[in-house]
Nucleic acid binder design. Structure first.
Length: 212
DNA sequence: AAGTCTGCCAACCGCACAAGT
DNA sequence: GACTTGTGCGGTTGGCAGACT
């Protein structure tokens, strides 16, 4: 049986202090993030490695976007959730500078309630039931190619990714969608790992959402 | 002003998976 | 192939802050 990673006595729990934050940031700046398990000891932090990793990813990364979600982001979360389910890391991977924890919290506290108020089941929302919550950009033409690009962003090529005007609604889906899904994903994509992308792409191909 | 309720969010926990041996 | 170890993910919860009575 595998030992829990945080069984050591004297490990701090709860909210991180400013000093702990600083220690972690300073350590990572000097040594990188190569081994979370040994990091707390090396950085003189009485935390478990998992806690360090979580704090780093969710709060201490320099490019994290904090605060309110934009209507575009909210629409995107709803659409991606309808497609991917509770795959928060994947969903967050398509929202620039947002973390899975933040997206998950936002879904559970805001979007879920909003959808339920509209008489919908947020857990079983189908693509063709997605409500038009916000009125913004004109919907773009969605093609299989743009879908493909959405799931295969070129690493480091932000222009290509955003210019693709990618959306998750392909030709097949728009055919049976009675309402305008407004599935433009104009919010620039970050780049999920290639293996994850490949796996998701395969699943979508299998469901017929994405042509192979 | 004090007590209670409610919502939000930071963080923990357990499990799954991948990589290494 | 079996086992160990480290990491990542999603579900859940505890605590805080603000709203309400």
């Amino acid at each position: 049986m595998r030992k829990p990673c945080c069984e050591e006595q004297g490990t701090n729990k709860g909210v991180w202090s400013r000093l702990e934050d600083k220690k972690l940031v300073d350590y990572i700046r000097l040594h990188g993030e190569d081994c979370w398990r040994s990091l707390p000891k090396a950085a003189d932090l009485h935390r478990c490695g998992k806690s360090c990793r979580l704090t780093r990813i969710n709060y201490l990364k320099p490019d994290i976007k904090r605060g309110n979600f934009t209507p575009d982001e909210e629409d995107l979360i709803i659409k991606l959730h309808a497609l991917l389910g509770n795959r928060w890391s994947l969903i967050a991977g398509r929202l620039p500078d947002r973390t899975d924890n933040e997206v998950k919290n936002y879904w559970n506290t805001q979007i879920r309630k909003k959808l339920m108020k509209m008489g919908m089941d947020p857990d079983n929302l189908k693509m063709n039931q997605i409500p038009q919550l916000h009125f913004h950009n004109q919907p773009q033409q969605c093609t299989s190619a743009s879908m493909d690009k959405a799931f295969n962003p070129v690493n480091g090529d932000a222009d290509v990714v955003s210019d693709a005007g990618s959306c998750l609604e392909d030709d097949t889906m728009s055919a049976d969608s009675s309402n305008d899904l407004n599935l433009d994903l104009n919010v620039a994509f970050s780049s999920p790992s290639p293996t994850v992308v490949a796996g998701e792409q395969k699943k979508l191909e299998n469901t017929g959402i994405l042509e192979s």
